[in-house]
Each structure stands twice: as structure tokens, then as C-alpha cells.
Nucleic acid binder design. Sequence first.
DNA 1: GCCGTTTTCGGCCCGACTGTTTTCAGTCG
Length: 569
Amino acid sequence: MTKDQVAASLKEIGTILELNGENPFKCRAYLNAARTLETSPTDLAELVRTNRLGELPGIGDALREKITTLVTTGKLPYLDELRTSIPSGLLPLLDLPGLGPKKLRALREKLKIESLEALTQACQDGRLASLDGFGEKTATNLLDSIQRRATYRKLHRLGTALPAAQSLLTHLRACPAVHQAEIAGSLRRGKEIVKDLDLIASSNKPKEVMKVFVSAPNVEKVVAHGETKSSVILTGGIPCDLRVVPPEAWPTALAHFTGSKEHNIALRQRAIDQGLHLSEWGLLKGKSKTPLKLKDEKDLHQALGLSFIPPELREDSGEVAAAEKNELPDLLTRDQIRGCLHNHTLASDGQDTLATMAQAAAELGLDWLGIADHSKSSFQANGLDAQRLEKQIEEIGVLNSKKPKCTLLSGTECDILKGGKLDFPDSLLQELDYVVASVHSGFTSDEKEMTDRIIRAIENEHVTCLGHPTGRLLLEREAYPLNIPKILEAAAANGTWIELNANPWRLDLDWRWWHKARDLGVLCCINPDAHKTSHLRFLDFGVTLARKGWLRPHDVINTRTLAQLRKLL
DNA sequence: GCCGTTTTCGGCCCGACTGTTTTCAGTCG
């Protein structure tokens, strides 16, 4: 059983226990363990084999035993038994906003509700409203939730969420009552997928700010409208929360609403250990009612004995311990990016010419731009054959002879065929400045086959960089099965770079692996995979995700000057 | 169910909003 499958099983246990009215802390222990596994970059099978599971935080004897059983046998009698205690239609009901374990339990015991249909019926015929603790409003809201279910459940890619948040932010900042306003939540932490948008503002007139917020042009429905907190659904279905705090609470509030939840818990625990009390309203010393004076988040972290923790790192994955020892990495920044390697033109499936792409890259401040059009086996993308590629190499030579602001490099995005053979012969590959090798076919292979296939390409001396390593399309297509630790080791052994594909649909390799990759000595290449000039801006997403993966400037080849790059190549 | 250099038992982050209530439980982030 894979790590994600084990994590899903633990989550299921925690949820069923909640529904059965178990001790909430016991439930949380299972949910915490699931998260620990999901975020741990280590190989689960390896941990089990070497009996080191217990070293993970939050995993004690009971969980170690259950995880071991899951990994080695693929089953868990305890979970099977739990499943028989609840009907299959019950769990999905928990996804409805406003319906938690306690209410669902009451509905099940008093009204025998065990499915969406039964719930809808009870809301409509008045039985639900007549229950203790329920009422008319609850029934209406639940019916509304059921109707909007698809919308509420939707997740959103960074590429769509960020522009929506920025436009709301502009709307808020135009309000004179607003002191400061910022994007918070998972979006500020640079998550590749977000559930909702979190905005925060400081003001002495919160009511006015809230009024401006709920009446913003792209608000479709107001879910909650309070003095300091409101929730809306935007057209397109993205939920958005706004919190408004007085200006003096800005640093603690910004930190609080940026999260993550787990990071916040770690910080609050740290505050308690130091005789302090931390909440969104401020940092209090002992029994004092007056918050310490803080200028910004840096001040807050300092007051807790920490160096400043950038938002991207706040996932409770070692950042607090590193900040305590002043060992946080000096993260990559956008202005350090000088070029990128994986871009397309009209020759294959891109929409702009070589010259236009070079011009656009220069306008973004890039010194060098690699062109890597598809190879011949990618028929669907009008891949180049040897002859057309030779012609492109010549064209690039001509353009470069005019000494443009941004120098072009000749490359290819060469298909890795089944079995690991490349789509072009070595004799052609060696004429190029570099080679990005990617998989575009045969996604149904099993893990071993796909891993071997890719490693064979990594071992080819002409392959510079592995393109979009897992082939995932966020919220659309799963990654193909791959042993990523093995891929990373092969890349390290052969000096092959790994792409961080910055297209918001991909963001592949996933940020969760980069810390490990970095420690293995694997170099990262951030690539927009641009199919038109406007896509070059995807580099911003790439930088965010690289930061999230703890990458420093020298871990990323995009920071090299053209001369340094040529030497490396 | 996990955890511990004050604790091996008794804690486990903290607060806003809603809807149902006359003081609070449930849900959410």
C-alpha cells in the first residue's frame, strides 16, 4: 500500500471515530498521523522495514502497529470492522458545510438518516427542523448546501485563485476605511491548490469594510456577514473569507490567518512554553491584558525567539525548529531568475515565433531563453522531426547573431519512449545546447516500468533535464505511478537536472519533494513550459513553489548567468 | 491515541459566527 493510501485509511478511521462519538483527541491523533505521512518525504516502506515509524511525531505504539499492518498486508481488520459500523452513504454527508459529526450523529440516531436522499427529504418535510438543536434555518441552509454541493467541494488551482484574490484585494484597498489589506491563507503560503481565498484587513471601522467586501462586484452569495469575519462565494464558485482586525492586531492576525493551522498550533504551543499567550488579537505576556507591541510578523517571530519564517514554509514541516536555530534557508527570489529552458514556439504547439518569445523574455528581464519544442513522436503537438529541428537550430543561430537582449538556446523537449529510449538519436541530441526529456505517452504503465523508463533517460549523457517528472495535471489527471526517491537518486548520480514545471496546471515536481532533492544535490530547473509569451509569467508560480520546497538561489540553475550556464552545459 | 528535563496522568490552540437558545453547542478555519 502506498503512503497516500495509508494516509487515506487513517483519515477514514479518524472520521468514523468522530461519527461514532469517540474521544475527539483520539480522532485527531488519527487525522494528525495521516497528515504526518502525507507531508513526510521519506519512503514509507523503508520506514516500516527498518522499524523507524515511531520516529515520526504523533505516531506511537498503536498507530505504528496499524500502519505496519496496512503497508505489509494492504488491509486492516480494525478499519474493516469500523466500516461495518456505518452505512456507506453517511461519510460523504460530512462534506456538506454546516454539517459536522455531532449533528450528523443526532440525525442518524433520531431520524435514521443515512443518505443524501433521506437528508433532503427530512429537510423538506419539517422533521429536521423539529429536532432539538435544529431549526428552520438549519434545514434551509442544508438544502442550499446540497444544491451547491458541487461548487462548494471544488478546489481551485493557484493560477485561477490568485487573480481572483488580487482583484478583491484591489477592491478592498480602494476603501478609505482600510488601513492594510493582504492575501492570507493557503494562497499566501503558495499552495498549488486552494479550497478558498482568505483575505485580511486592518481597520478602525470594520463594519464599513465588511459592507464593501460583501458588495464586491464578483460576490455571488453572502454566507456569513459579521463584524470581524465574513464569508462569501464568488462567481465561479470560489469561497472567500475576510477578517478585519484593528491596526494594532495586524501582525498577529496576518500570521494567524496565513496559517497553516498546524504551524499556528506549533507557534501557540511555543508561546505557552514561554509563558506567553498567542492569538490573532495579539501576543500577551503572563496574565497581562495588554498585547506586546509588534510592528510586523518579523517582530512576532522574534518575540518567540525565532528568525522570520517566510509564509511559504509555514507548513509545520521543520520550519519552527530551523527558525529557532537560525537555520532557515535564504530562499530564492524572483529577481534572481535570469532564464529558463523549456518553452515552445509555433514550430510545435506554441503560439508565438522565436523572435517574439525572445522579445517577451527580454521584457521580463531574462538574459537567456531555451527553446524546447516537442519531438516527432508527439504527433498531437506537431512535434519536430530531425530536419525541422536542424532548421530551427539554424534560425536560432541567425537570431543570436543580431546580439539580442535575450539570447536563445537550442533545445528540444524530447519524448521518452516506452522502454526509456529517446525520440532522437544521440548524434542529433549532441548538436543541441541541451535536452529536456519528458514522458507524453503510455501513462498506464506500472510503477516499476515507468521508473525504469525514466531512469534510462536520466542516464543518457545528452539529457540535461527531466521535464514534468510525474505528468500530473492538477485536479484533472493523476500523476503516473513513479518511485520518486529512486528518480531523485538517479538524477543525483548522473548530474541530471529536474524540472519544476511552473505551469499552474502542473507545478511538477511537487514542492514536497524538493527539500529532499536539494539535500541529495539535485539541481532544480524552473520552467514555464510557455506555449505563448504570456505563459512566461508562470515563472512567478515556479519561484513560489521552489521557495515552498526550501530551495536557495544556488539550488536553482535559472539563477546562473549565460556564461555560467554554458559552462554547466 | 500521543506525549513528557516540573507531569507516565491529564492534558491536548484558540476564537468568530450561526442558530438555537436564555447561556451555549456545533461548526469552521
